[in-house]
């Protein structure tokens, strides 16, 4: 089976699982209708050419899931920090923009990194370039944290084969 076919089958399976989860109907006629809509979606995805390695990063998926707990902790910590700054009457913020090195090899890795930065309150990805990411940080402290590149290293570790 060619990689493209494998991905189509996988996409179809995922979509079917989604359909079953959302509908909760097990009637034969409705199942057939669901199957039909899955087939049309897969066909359209193939025609548009969006079911490529970028759209469905099969190999990286397990490692990305392992990365999530660390990300969740970082998100909670920065949430509390930014929330504290908002409720402080003097509004102690000093916005800066910094350029962070992004040595991820794949597009998926860069996207995950950029999205992780944005998901963490206090830092927002402004622009993603070939090997760096421009970030707007709410505080100099947040920018420095990002420059230690711990998040970047963890994302890079996800994409190693």
């Amino acid at each position: 089976m060619t990689p493209s076919n494998t991905r189509s089958v996988l996409l179809g399976t995922l979509l079917s699982a989604l359909w079953l989860m959302l509908s909760g109907h097990w009637d034969v006629r409705l199942l057939l209708l669901g199957l039909l809509s899955v087939a049309v979606t897969v066909w359209m995805a193939r025609r548009m050419g969006i079911d490529d390695a970028e759209g469905l990063p099969v190999q990286q998926l397990p490692r990305l899931i392992a990365y999530l707990p660390w990300l969740a902790r970082a998100v909670v910590a920065s949430n509390i920090d930014v929330a504290r700054r908002i409720v402080t009457p003097s509004l102690p913020i000093e916005p800066v923009t910094v350029r962070v090195h992004a040595d991820q090899k794949t597009a998926v890795g860069r996207v995950v990194y950029a999205n992780s930065i944005t998901l963490t309150p206090g830092t927002i990805t402004l622009e993603v370039e070939e090997n760096s990411i421009e970030v707007h940080a709410l505080t100099g402290e947040g920018a420095r944290d990002l420059c230690t590149n711990e998040m970047g290293r963890r994302v890079t570790a996800c994409e190693a084969h």
């Binding site: 929330a83 409720v87 509004l91």
Partner: peptide
């Protein structure tokens, strides 16, 4: 956290800093 995020959206001085505040509502 939703309330704090919304207060941030009103209090912060420009779009970018407001985005940080909106991020709080969106995550936690």
């Amino acid at each position: 956290f939703t309330l704090i995020g919304s207060i941030g959206i009103v209090r912060m001085p420009d779009v970018f800093t407001r985005l940080h505040a909106a991020g709080i509502t969106d995550t936690l």
